[in-house]
């Protein structure tokens, strides 16, 4: 496998996309889209069902090839990145993580070290240390020897995020990491994501719930019918007009009774 010489330029923006489009058969899922994402922030990707959020995330993660346009990560076109080199930079969590039949939490997290040691390299003490640290950060160390499939939804999601952390990537791409969780677990997981970002990671997370997005993300990116329609700091986007444009239903924005944060409500 061809290894890119470096990890890309750290001064370059995280992601740059230009005229990015994606179509399957006769359906266009993403209209020409141009944007750039900065480092060290939590970006929330919002929009109604079928707006193209997941598609955009998959394209950025290199899971799918665009129909047209360009994507660059850290100043290098995505196609120029080797698979493993890219995996050392960008970690991706699919919407429904598959069953991890027979794996313990520690083993699952250990798989996150693959981009660093490859198929045949030694699993070194440094790798082991990274795994322990990732489990500590995500607070799954307490059940590291349990089977992943025996965990509760929130614990399992944290275990998967631990695997992404162990990957030691600079950027996490998360596709609706809270979709199957109850409200308590949602907060738990998103707080973890926020904490990781404070530690210097860049995050792009697809979220269904606009209030959760506003609460935990620095900046929101809204898609509608495959088109980027709004973008801005979370607080600025939380107004009735913008939310109505994004979700196609009349919305009102109220202040949170305790924190005063804006809360969107469908009318």
């Amino acid at each position: 496998m061809r290894e890119p010489d470096a990890t890309g330029r750290t001064d370059a923006p995280l992601f740059e996309v230009e005229d990015l489009t994606f179509a399957v058969a006769d359906r266009t899922l993403l209209q020409p889209l141009t944007a750039r994402l900065e480092r060290g922030r939590v970006h929330g990707l919002i929009g109604h069902n079928g707006s193209g959020k997941s598609t955009l995330l998959k394209l950025l993660a290199g899971q799918q090839s665009p129909s047209g346009g360009r994507i660059a990560y850290a100043g290098r076109p995505l196609a120029a990145w080797g698979r493993r080199a890219f995996a050392r930079q960008v970690a991706y969590l699919p919407q429904q993580p598959p069953a991890a039949a027979g794996l313990t939490v520690r083993e699952l997290v250990g798989l996150g070290r693959y981009p660093w040691h490859g198929a045949l390299g030694r699993f070194t003490a440094a790798d082991r240390e990274r795994v322990e640290e990732a489990m500590r950060l995500t607070e799954v160390a307490g059940f590291s020897d349990r089977l992943v499939d025996s965990l509760s939804g929130g614990e399992r999601q944290r275990a998967w995020i631990a695997m992404l952390v162990a990957q030691d990537a600079a950027c996490l791409l998360l596709d609706e990491p809270t979709s199957a969780l109850d409200i308590g677990h949602q907060i738990q997981v998103l707080a973890l994501v926020q904490r990781l970002a404070r530690g210097g990671l860049s995050v792009l997370v697809v979220l269904h719930d606009v209030n959760m997005a506003a609460r935990f993300c620095d900046e929101l990116i809204a898609l509608h019918s495959g088109r980027l329609i709004r973008r801005g700091p979370s607080r600025e986007l939380m107004n009735a007009a913008d939310l109505q444009a994004i979700y196609d239903v009349p919305m009102a924005v109220l202040p949170h009774p305790e924190t005063g944060m804006p809360v969107g409500v469908a009318l």
Binding site: R83, R88, A91, Y92, L93, P94, P98, L111, L120
Partner: peptide, 23 residues
């Protein structure tokens, strides 16, 4: 046995496999 790491990762699905750097 040289394939063992791939075989640990492949059951997790194509998306995960690709995300951790498998072609």
């Amino acid at each position: 046995p040289m394939l063992a790491r791939w075989l640990d990762i492949l059951p997790l699905g194509a998306a995960t496999a690709q995300a951790v750097g498998l072609h």
